[in-house]
Design a protein around this nucleic acid. Sequence first.
DNA 1: ATGTCATGATAAC
DNA 2: TTATCCTGACATA
Length: 255
Amino acid sequence: MPEGHTLFRLAQDLTADLVDGGAVAVSSPQGRFVDVATIDGQPLRRAYSIGKHLFLEFGRRRVHVHLGLFGKWKRRRLSTAPRSSVRLRLAAKRIAWDLTGPTACHVINDEAYEALVARLGADPLAKRARPQKAFARIKASRREIGALLLDQSILSGIGNVYRAELLFLLGIHPQTPGCAMDDPTLKALWTLARKLLRRGAELNRIVTVSDDNAARGERLHVYGRRSCRICSSSIRSMSVAGRRIAYCPSCQPYQ
DNA sequence: ATGTCATGATAAC
DNA sequence: TTATCCTGACATA
């Protein structure tokens, strides 16, 4: 689940349920969120995401959550007892949000927060994101575009599914070096990333096919597929930056 | 009951 | 590059 769209949507949903809703009851059934006492009973002032990071502001404290690969938030009725793996439960009124399996969940101080944000690249979901620096870094790099897209210090929020879908839709081979990308291509990449992640946040899932095809239950072009929906070639996969990426050898020729 | 895999990131080699 | 952390769903036995 968790690429940038997931965190953006989560921030919206947590805001709707908990911000301006008075005191939030904070607990850690699992016991591994150690800062319960400093947060419990305070109102949630703001919830927002940057890339794949989620930030929750309680008073002057800020909680940093990163879901990693397995992390999940689930919205429950307050009457539902949390399972023992719940790292963090936020509850107000009749609603509880349960967090399990995060890579990070802790109070973060201003200094660490600033350092973290400083090493995140432009987020396609941010209102006034300026991708110029990302473009410059991509153009200056000989690394593969498939690796650059996963580098959160260049662009933040794109994960393994979006990188595969973006490269497919733009007809770019995953191993194309960043320095081979021209400005129109990078602009198209950014525009498409914004569009797809925005749609992902709206639908709360990644959908890259047309509305018509989505209505038939389809969602993706290459990720997890066996044959290309455009040319029916066999989809291939390779490892780029340590993760598998699917691509169509015919729609995404090298060079 | 056990094994496998996953939309992530980092530390260590 | 590999190892490691984080969990749960699903397949296989």
